[in-house]
Amino acid sequence: MGEVIVITSGKGGVGKTTTTANLATGLALAGKKVAALDLDIGLRNLDIVLGLENKIVYDLVDVVRGNCDYNKALIKDKRYEGLYLLPSSQIKDKTSVSPEEIKQLCNVLRKQFDYILIDCPAGIEQGFKNAIAGADKSIIVSTPEVSSVRDSDRVIGLLEAEGKTDNMLIINRYNVKLVNNRDMLSAEDVNDILMLDLIGIVPDDEGIIKSSNKGEPIISDNKLFISKIYQNIVRRIMGEDVDFISPEEEKLSIIGKLKRLLEINPLKKGRNYVTNNKQA
């Protein structure tokens, strides 16, 4: 039986769709059979980030309404063996599906896939309720900004109220320079507040924009540092215990090196925290 994981954040624009695209691709590259579901009804985007926008015939609402079989609506990604996309609908509104219908769909897909990743819309209204309905686990994507952390906290509260307590955290758009300058919340700061199982710290990287421009998830480019970071997240999702690479290891500024010598590296503590958290 497959596992259903929802990628959510409350706040918009923090990178849910990019994260979903990369993790789904990464799981497929790791040999898993993956269905990526876009639940952002009316604002379809996972298709274009994955580069599958021209392949759509049927969508999620067609499946839920019974207009077609789910197998017909699933788009097979020819580049990555095992990766499938169920696109969202662009025309119908969010109320055209119910949480119960999504739950049923997830239970059907579970039988055929190892992982079902759900790209949740921003907000905490109907679309959010639909997206979390069938999920076993959640990945909260938060940037180290006050607005994003606050919204994440709210979303975690709502998930817990639904009895969903298996929640993981990805800190996105991490700017090491700002953190070292003490002008951005560190990974440790963010997780001191959210207190989740931290599974990844993804640096702010201009390569992300280029990859969505091309419709090729960045995780497939092995040469890049950020791709290694995503691959490690994928391994953690699959249950492996993987050491954290500091986003600093790629390019250390002179000041960063000096700071490291003087042992004021904020991430070191962060990593210990993660380990402690796991043991706890």
Binding site: V146, R150, D183, S186, D189, D192, I193
Partner: peptide, 14 residues
């Protein structure tokens, strides 16, 4: 340090 300010404000508002 704006990082510290951010953390304190967040903890309070949350």
């Amino acid at each position: 340090e704006s990082r510290q300010v951010a953390k304190e404000r967040l903890q309070l508002v949350l």
